[in-house]
């Protein structure tokens, strides 16, 4: 065991699944591609061989029933992880996720719980267009009864998957193919990252950048560039979209007086909007109006010429932050 063992983001998820399945016989994995050499990257590698076909189930193309089955098995006392190779495909499963899983605990008066993990992979770019690109965290975060986590680092990918599996509520776990090859130090032992706690990735005084998932990684890069240009940016990686770590956000904007929220979803009614509303309602006087950096309210285009302006990256954060900080 080495203290500095490095692991990729995707293999960190894989390790979480291995360890949770070994630790708890109630955990099982069901979803498309868990027995495919490419469909879900290497996140499912070795699981079928180790735990067998009863607990590692590749499925027909039947998102609605497979998700319903995971929800039902959770209600019946297991801890299923239902995986969708793309968030887009998960839309067939909106009914079991929202009508059933999210409402279940409340509408049973707390007498029955639904500890299911709904794992949706964000997979976009490469001229895949509107039905193979969507990042719908805001939609799920809108629903009472659902928790939504979005790891940005390999450490969090493992820790949040473990936390999601151990949580007694339905948790939507959204990871991002653009992060799968990122490597970092990941402890070998099993551990969890608390749901509902953000992480301060860079400390700074001039501006608060709130982001999650891929854009949290980009925000860290942006902060380093901004630092060289004389702007001291504080980066808050949300890690959990819901419940939101409001204290971490408010603490930071109180200090910096400027807020930039970067989110990989659409602009209107989105995660960024929610955080701006939080800032406004807090009564903390910002030096400048807050700024949202998001996708435009537009479906994902195919052509690379449009993808280039559609998706946001480090450079966009740098530019927007500089504008916000300019006197």
């Amino acid at each position: 065991m080495s203290a500095n063992r490095r692991l990729s983001y995707s293999l960190a998820i894989n390790e979480a699944l291995h360890q949770c399945m070994a630790a708890d016989r109630g955990v099982f994995l069901i979803g498309q591609g868990v027995n495919s050499p490419w469909y879900v990257g290497n996140t499912a590698q070795g699981l079928l061989e180790r735990f067998g076909g009863k607990r590692v189930i590749d499925t027909p193309v039947s998102e609605n029933a497979m998700t319903g089955a995971a929800v039902g098995a959770a209600i019946a006392g297991m801890r299923p992880v239902v995986e969708h190779p793309r968030v887009d495909f998960m839309l067939y499963a909106i009914d079991p996720i929202i009508n059933e899983a999210a409402n279940w605990h409340y509408m049973s008066g707390g007498r029955s719980a639904c500890p299911v993990v709904i794992w949706g992979i964000i997979n976009r770019g490469g001229e895949q267009a509107a039905q193979h690109s969507q990042a719908l965290q805001a939609m799920f975060a809108h629903i009472p009864g659902l928790k939504v986590v979005m790891p940005a680092t390999p450490y969090d990918a493992k820790g949040l998957m473990v936390a999601a599996i151990r949580d007694d509520n339905p948790v939507v776990f959204m990871d991002d193919r653009w992060l799968y090859r990122d490597e970092d130090i990941v402890p070998e032992k099993i551990y969890s990252v608390p749901i509902g706690k953000a992480a301060v990735r860079r400390k700074g005084d001039d501006i608060t950048i709130v982001a999650s998932s891929y854009l949290a990684r980009e925000a860290v890069k942006a902060a380093d560039i901004l630092h060289h240009e004389g702007v001291s940016a504080e980066v808050i990686d949300l890690r959990t979209i819901k419940p939101l770590d409001t204290a971490a956000i408010l603490r930071s904007i109180k200090k910096t007086g400027r807020l930039l929220v970067a989110d990989g979803g659409w602009r209107s009614f989105g995660v960024a909007s929610e955080i701006c509303a939080l800032a406004a309602e807090s009564g903390i006087g910002l030096d400048r109006p807050p700024v949202r950096l998001t996708l435009p309210d537009c479906p994902a285009p195919a052509s690379v010429s449009l993808e280039k302006v559609y998706y946001k990256h480090c450079e966009d954060i740098v530019l927007t932050a500089k504008k916000l900080c300019a006197r």
Partner: peptide, 29 residues
């Protein structure tokens, strides 16, 4: 993925459409 394509480069290979001849659309879900 060009502007002159049947979906003006917005759809790509999986979104082929030609309403003028009754091809109302293809989509990959």
């Amino acid at each position: 993925c060009r502007e002159t394509g049947c979906a003006r480069g917005r759809g790509g290979s999986m979104h082929l459409v030609a309403p003028e001849v009754g091809m109302l659309g293809a989509a990959p879900i």
